[in-house]
Amino acid sequence: MTDLSSTSRNKINMPLVGFGTYQLSTEEAESSVAEALRAGYRHIDSAEGYNNEKGTGNAIKKSGIAREEIFLTTKLFPGNTQWGVQEKTYDSTIATLKNQLKELQVDYVDLYLIHAPLASLRLEQWRALIELKKQGLTKHIGVSNYNEEAINEILEAGLEKPEINQIEFHPLCAQPELTQFLNKHSIASTAYSSLAPLSTWRTAEGQGGEVLAEKKQDAQSTIKEVASELNVSEAKLLLRWVLQNGYSVLTRSTNPQRIKENIDLFDFTIPQSQMQRLNDLNQNQAFAWAANGLNPMEAAPALK
């Protein structure tokens, strides 16, 4: 997919480049989302588990941008008994989004996701998402960190299929089999943590970027070489690689200049030969949750 522009959208009318709010404080979420909206982002990604939705809502409310011009995603944290967090039921899932709407200061979200298949009640939660869509509290519903098996549970139950799956996606975690499965079932894909291969990713104390750093070293020289040959930053290269693979992509920064740079991905194309060099780096190695000691795509408990 190389015929892309700043106005391109995916099959659920989501702008291809979104701004994420993970690991931001409430104050940082407000200032950074405000900066992102000024820079032209119209896709904002949030989550119950980020504990900063009040800040995101403040930024949206103060922006003066019409609500219908902003594609707003948020996520349900499903619960996880291994972490001592009670699993959400059908009713508590309904109540959770209603509370999130209050925090975000909006009447609806454009997309509501189950954050990961960590609960044995995930089909019950999915039925609740279907109901939330019927009620108009979300326009679209989907999942995040779901592998083929977890999505097949939904399909085999005869329920409405997810419209999107948000997963970690970059040259070291390209997940070609899952990508093929999603395409087969016309499920759109959004990438997060697409800058994970870089040495500059999540370097602040407590962010966990140092975990598994040794697995990135060989790839970093190739990424640097390709970026230099195309005269773009390594970050822009990786984000553009995601788009050319047919995914939408989330970026995140508190630096106003980087926020502006990360949405400017439509003035160059990665030639196929260079795409292949990046594709060849794949290890199917996940990094985003490694500091938490798990891969969420492999952590689904048995259904109740």
Rank of each mutant, 00 (worst) to 15 (best):
G49E: 11
I70N: 03
K134C: 00
V85W: 12
F71I: 01
T89I: 01
N147C: 08
Y146T: 02
V143I: 13
Y108T: 05
A150P: 11
Y108E: 11
A150W: 03
T81Y: 10
E87I: 04
E131H: 15
W126T: 11
G136A: 02
I114M: 05
V109L: 04
H115V: 06
K62V: 00
N80D: 15
D110Q: 11
S144H: 11
Y108I: 01
H115Q: 15
N80L: 03
E156W: 06
E124Y: 04
F77T: 01
E156M: 06
S120T: 13
K134I: 00
L159P: 14
R122C: 04
K134G: 00
L118F: 11
T73H: 07
N52G: 05
P78G: 01
N80P: 07
N147P: 10
D107S: 15
L121P: 01
E103Q: 15
K139I: 00
A128M: 07
A119C: 10
T93M: 06
E156P: 05
R67G: 03
A116V: 01
S120Y: 04
P78A: 03
T74R: 09
Y50H: 13
G84K: 10
L132P: 14
D110S: 07
I60S: 00
T138H: 09
Q125W: 11
L113A: 05
V85R: 12
K88A: 09
I141E: 08
E68F: 00
K75R: 09
Y146W: 13
Y50S: 04
G49Y: 01
S63K: 06
L72C: 02
G64S: 09
V109R: 09
L118T: 12
D107L: 02
E103A: 12
E149P: 04
K75W: 05
F77L: 06
K133C: 01
V109F: 08
K61P: 05
A150I: 02
N147W: 04
L155F: 15
L118P: 14
Q86L: 06
I130R: 14
N147Y: 01
T96A: 15
E153P: 12
G142E: 08
E153C: 04
E153R: 13
G57M: 04
G158R: 14
I60H: 09
L155S: 03
N52R: 10
G84M: 05
T138K: 12
E69G: 02
G49K: 12
D110H: 12
E48V: 03
T89M: 08
L155E: 03
A128V: 06
A66W: 05
G49T: 06
